[in-house]
Design a protein around this nucleic acid. Structure first.
Lengths: 364, 364
DNA sequence: AAGATTTGTGAGAACGTTCTCGCAAATCTC
DNA sequence: GAGATTTGCGAGAACGTTCTCACAAATCTT
């Protein structure tokens, strides 16, 4: 009986058993360089008998590449972004032989910095980042200084030259306004999730992430195109927590001339609206209308279904991986700004005021 | 002006600049062994000037540990497990200085095998696995053979000795039945998501994952305790896809004596019920009652809120990490079967039949 | 059949760390 | 102040691969 080795067999053990040199065994296993087919067989057999598995850390060390990409993402559940994007990225990477090291920043710039540092130290071959803010980018630049490819997703960051994959939220909210207008709505509310320490307010914060900026600009552009005046619009910015969002909804609804339709900038806000509306016995799609950004299973399953601006999150992730791997395989690609189209999915949460002439909006 | 090195500085560069040996520089940076405080200062300064960052791959190679754990998980979104568990695990790991390599199996045993193999090859220090089936476990055993600690979460696997962290779904569904009974319900339906290739059926599949087994047994136990007879119960098993789940819901509702309350084994099934009920203009919590396993933001926000059996998914993940790291730090820990309590959260989706004597269930 | 080329293999360096060991200098002991 | 101990540091091996180079044997060329 053979003596059991306590630790895992290495290529040296395989080489010995096959009666060849370390280099030859490595070539046989790795399938590179010149090597006789008969030798390959021999080495394979020895490897199988020993249960040999190559040590990927040693391999990474020698080859200077880990076949691992780093993902720095904001883990916000309800927006159905974190999970959908993560799955898409993990699956796309796997299909190309890469694994994913995942880190969560919780929208915190310090955590983002640290996550990036750690991933670079771990020698990932490239990074996909959902930046937590558009304002700071020295840490992103430092990724590039370190020579690692970088792809930004979901949010743009000005001041840095890197490939980014985002969605056309401007057109999305514009389409939402257009849709509500076509259904006869003339008073628009907008409930906007925003980071910060100011609770909730109707005052536009100085600094917003690019998706939120786009959604606001799309809203304003849609209103302008349709001749909707400022006094027909109202909005609230608020932190993404239950207390503030509930109060923000209340403030929107309790205005003298309350909006008939409310857009929400993400699913948290939509849920806040749903909750407050429920408490007030306001029926969605009847007493109050709703359109939100980001589709979800529950938005489709509810009665009535929620009308949404759907964003192609899976494509976002898959394309990001594709672009990142392209840069890894052949450094020096041109940085691209890829913008994916959004889609308005009309369900039942927007009341059709046109059908009921008695509800026709007053002169505005 | 100094000559720019093209690649990242190594400890050798630091040593040279500080005028000490490689070993001393390493000691200074790593903070181990005997070393003079003045030398540490010197080396730190040199490292800072060069922008030196230790190569974690080389370090892992030498130390035989990567400070990385592998996560093998089933990415099913709607059950709010994948995202919540992943975030909890990533955050708990980070707090202890570990990173997470994530892989998705999509409930596929072949993918699970391959994922495990890859992660072991990448020399993760331990694995957390959500097993896709209870039937096969040789690949899990092979993790242990390789000497890597293993913690199972969410689902039990018989035939393998490993620490597992699960939730008490038996008591959860039992409590759900009890709650509905207390509200006056006497006809119970159960819509159960199950893996397989049989579409939907009222016949109990031979093999189910442990969570589903527990939920069924809890349902049956609750019924038995309350004296609910077999003819007052009906169930459907079905694959987790829209077509089958819709048909399964229809079959439950179209029985001669349809159930007044339906339990669903996960959120997908709950959404299927919601959708069909909406199409039929059945009001939840009035015309048809619903309790589902797993809480979610939308279940809380809807009007009426959905009554749920909430599972402590974050704790599940955090405890799994804790146990795994304990085993990594000190191998030879005793395998534990940790079962976390579930909680019934009553909202408005279960009609109170007791309040309306005229609705009192007929003699049964 | 002699030179040119191709093929298959092995020896040894290299990747960037950490660890073990040995040794000289500094400090302690009485 | 001589021996014992402690302190600080450097040389070199080690982790498990892959890669470069050299070289002998086999095959091709004309």
């Amino acid at each position: 009986m053979a003596i059991q080795k306590s630790s895992a067999p290495t290529i040296i053990d395989v080489a010995e058993r096959a009666g060849v040199s370390r280099a030859t065994a490595s070539r046989a296993m790795g399938g590179y360089g010149r090597i006789a087919e008969s030798t390959v067989e021999l080495v394979r057999k020895a490897a199988a008998e020993l249960g040999y598995r190559p040590n990927e850390v040693a391999r990474a060390m020698r080859q200077g590449r880990t076949r691992t990409i780093g993902l720095v993402i904001v883990a916000d559940f309800t927006n159905a972004f974190f999970d959908r994007a993560t799955k898409a990225i993990v699956d796309a990477a796997k299909a190309r032989g890469y694994q994913v090291l995942i880190t969560n920043t919780d929208e915190d710039i310090a955590a983002e910095r640290q996550a990036i540092e750690t991933l670079v130290d771990k020698q990932v071959d490239g990074l996909i980042v959902v930046p937590s803010t558009s304002a700071v980018h020295d840490h992103l630049a430092s990724i590039q200084t370190s020579g690692k490819p970088l792809v930004l997703i979901d949010r743009r960051v000005d001041g840095i030259i890197a490939t980014s994959v985002t969605t056309d939220d401007f057109s999305g909210t514009e389409a939402a306004v257009r849709h509500a207008h076509a259904m006869g709505h003339r008073r628009f509310g907008f409930l906007i999730a925003a980071e910060g320490k100011y609770g909730h307010s109707s005052e536009r914060p100085a600094l917003l992430i690019s998706t939120v900026e786009d959604r606001i600009n799309g809203f304003l552009s849609g209103c302008a195109d349709l001749g909707i005046k400022a006094r027909q619009q109202s909005w609230m910015f608020c932190e993404d927590n239950p207390r503030d969002s509930d109060q923000a909804v209340a403030k929107l609804l309790d205005q003298p001339k309350a909006p008939s339709v409310i857009l929400t900038s993400n699913n948290d806000m939509a849920l806040a609206l749903l909750k407050t509306a429920g408490n007030r016995r306001l029926a969605i799609g009847k007493d109050i209308s709703l359109i939100t950004v980001d589709d979800s299973q529950w938005a489709a399953a509810m009665a009535p279904g929620i009308t949404v601006v759907a964003r192609p999150v899976e494509s976002l992730g898959a394309i990001a991986v594709e672009k990142l791997l392209a840069e890894i395989d052949a450094p020096g690609q041109k940085a691209e700004k890829i913008v994916l189209p959004t889609e308005l999915i009309a369900r039942g949460s927007v009341a059709n005021l046109v059908m009921y002439p008695e509800n026709e909006p007053e002169n505005y």
